[in-house]
Design a protein around this nucleic acid. Structure first.
Length: 592
DNA sequence: TTGACCACGTA
DNA sequence: CGTACGTGGTCAAC
């Protein structure tokens, strides 16, 4: 077993290159790598090596010479120093990301990934420094030089790192390679046998792109989103006034904003607008009895009482003041004018990317502050009508696939249903999301007749969800279905059905999007030129690329061309067409 | 201090 | 038309 093999100590990276070549490592061969304080460990093809050189230098040299597929436990750990050192990685295998694909959930730490993939109870994962009261020292503690304990769990001091010696890193890398090897047959089992065969199988392609997406997440986190601080301050000032000098001034400003609303209600002087219960009572006092005070519920009463309008504008400003105000700028915007937050390549459900620091939910009013740097522009692209197109592909519905030939998918659908476009759109969305209210009923029946294959696949997912069974996305992601106590509660069953119905579409769309994004990323590095174009934002179906002005046309072409290639590869033989709206702008808000 | 709930922004 | 996410507020329980 490679995990216990004695790593070969090497003096220099040149020796390593010769050893890797001798082991048959070439372009695309899996080579696992891990960092230790005093060097780097590698594993490939039954060999392990320990090199007394830094990870960045080793990876740079080996990548240049052999361009292998780098295998690591998690891009968050291993790729971060590589990104910081600007080492270009073209192909990787993120064991944790592939684990999440196969198993579902959001595990990223090696201890959890290992336990789950070895069939061990994740609740039993040992922590470092934890005293095992049941076995006070007299049990077999095994060999401390083996990262795996006799009970099968990873040794906490290994799993939580940092590792000291390159020989340790070599064993650690070997373990990652073992997981990589174990994941291969599982991926082959994760594709629906009815899918058109591809080489490599779609789930393996997905594993590649999910791994690259984690790398992209590290890059997004490190690079940040260009933001013009002065514009941001202007916009914030417009909503909540100038930056208060101290806490007293902040409180005064807050009170002033509150009073604009409270003055309009008799006896409202002391109402706490941040307390929904008090707001509800206040509204009742002026004749509006509502179950809750959400904006959409108050919206119909706009214009009937000045306090309602004032409250709704107050809410808008309050959002800016609390979530996207001066504090937000201070916390998340660097001296270089980049807005940075933590990124993840997938969430724990359908697998969309997530971002912190408000990067994924920045209000449209603040978007004018997202400005390209001097000499640069943004190339912005978003996938048009991605979800119904994805549905056509994953369900292999030939009729719906034909509709994707139109740049506006809903117009052929409307023609086929014999209704207007808005009705057709609502019906398609209702089908994908599991409508419970509204009046798309007649059009939904039409959909069943016109696109029975697509509708049946949605219903199948819905049924599985209702039963509490996990579903798999087109690319092979397992979407675990929570099994609650309320199995007999029809409301819970219906919610699970909607969740599953939505997950197979949203999840597959996320997979296609990421495959596109990482293909674009690879294309950008090949673009050449000193100052690099980089992806600075991924927003579910939208890409924002920060590009040197003179490269803008190249990137526009790249976005279209990569989408065509990715779409053809992802939805092999389905005949589904994907479209992107692409524009070149200086401000994010100028697009569309 | 923590977790639930509310509320609201994005897709 | 519903799902998902992240964020910050208050409140009640710890």
């Amino acid at each position: 077993m490679t995990a216990t093999a004695v790593p070969q100590p090497l003096e220099a990276t040149d020796d390593l290159l010769r050893a890797l070549q001798a082991a048959g490592v070439g372009p695309g061969s899996p080579v696992a790598v891990a960092a230790a304080a005093a060097g780097t460990g590698l594993a490939a093809a039954g060999h392990t090596w320990a090199v007394p050189a830094r990870l960045e230098g080793v990876v740079r040299r080996v990548a240049d010479q052999l361009s292998p597929r780098w295998v690591w436990w998690s891009g968050h750990d291993t790729a971060a120093p590589l990104v910081a050192a600007r080492v270009n990685v073209t192909a990787c295998w993120d064991v944790a990301a592939v684990h999440r694909l196969l198993h579902g959930g959001s595990a990223d730490r090696p201890a959890a990934v290992w336990a789950l993939s070895q069939g061990l109870d994740p609740a039993g994962v040992p922590r470092s420094g934890q005293l095992d009261l049941l076995s006070s020292g007299d049990t077999d503690e095994g060999d401390p030089a083996d990262p795996v304990r006799p009970d099968g769990y990873l040794r906490p001091d290994w799993a939580e790192g940092p590792l000291r010696e390159p020989a340790q890193a070599a064993r650690w890398a070997a373990l990652a390679l073992r997981l990589h090897d174990e994941q291969q047959p599982l991926l082959r089992g994760a594709v629906d046998p009815r899918q058109p065969p591809s080489r490599p199988p779609l789930a393996v392609l997905t594993a590649w792109s999910e791994s690259a997406a984690e790398l992209l997440a590290v890059e997004l986190q490190s690079g940040g989103l260009p933001l013009d601080r002065d514009t941001a301050v202007e916009l914030i000032t417009g909503h909540v006034g100038p930056r208060p000098a101290d806490e007293t001034a902040a409180a005064a400003s807050r009170r002033e904003r509150d009073d604009v609303v409270r003055r309009l209600v008799t006896g409202g002087a002391d109402v706490d607008l941040r307390n929904p219960a008090q707001v509800r009572d206040m509204l009742a006092g002026i004749g509006f009895v509502v179950p809750d005070t959400r904006s959409w519920r108050l919206e119909p009463f706009r214009g009937t009482h000045p306090a309602v309008d004032a409250l709704l504008s107050w809410r808008k400003s309050e959002r800016i003041a609390t979530t996207y105000g001066y504090g937000w700028l201070d916390r998340h915007v660097g001296a270089d004018g980049r807005l940075r937050g933590a990124w993840r390549g997938c969430d724990g459900a359908a697998g969309r990317m997530t971002a912190q620091a408000g990067l994924h939910n920045m209000p449209a009013e603040l978007r004018p502050a997202v400005v390209a740097e001097p000499g640069y522009v943004f190339v912005r692209a978003d996938l048009g009508q991605i979800e119904p197109r994805v549905l056509a592909a994953v369900s292999a519905d030939a009729a719906l696939a034909r509709a994707t030939a139109d740049p506006d998918l809903y117009s052929p659908v409307a023609a086929r249903l014999g209704c207007d476009r808005p009705t057709a759109k609502v019906a398609v969305l209702a089908a994908m999301y599991g409508q419970t209210s509204g009046t798309a009923g007649e059009a939904l029946k039409g959909l069943d007749r016109a696109y029975p294959v697509a509708m049946a696949s949605l219903r199948a997912a819905d049924d599985e969800g209702k039963l509490g069974n996990d579903v798999r996305t087109y690319g092979g992601r397992r979407v675990p279905m929570w099994v609650g106590a309320g199995q007999l509660d029809p409301a819970v069953a219906a919610a699970r059905g909607r969740f599953a119905r939505n997950a197979v579409v949203q999840g597959a769309a996320a997979e296609l999007f990421k495959m596109w994004a990482v293909t674009v990323r690879a294309g950008l590095t090949g673009l050449g030129g000193g100052d690099q174009a980089q992806i600075v934002l991924c927003l579910h179906d939208e890409l924002l690329v920060h590009v040197p002005e003179r490269r803008a046309d190249d990137v526009v072409a790249l976005l279209h061309q990569t989408l065509e290639r990715t779409g053809a590869r992802w939805a092999t033989g389905s005949g589904v067409r994907f479209v992107a709206d692409v524009s070149v702008v200086s401000r994010w808000s100028d697009a569309k």
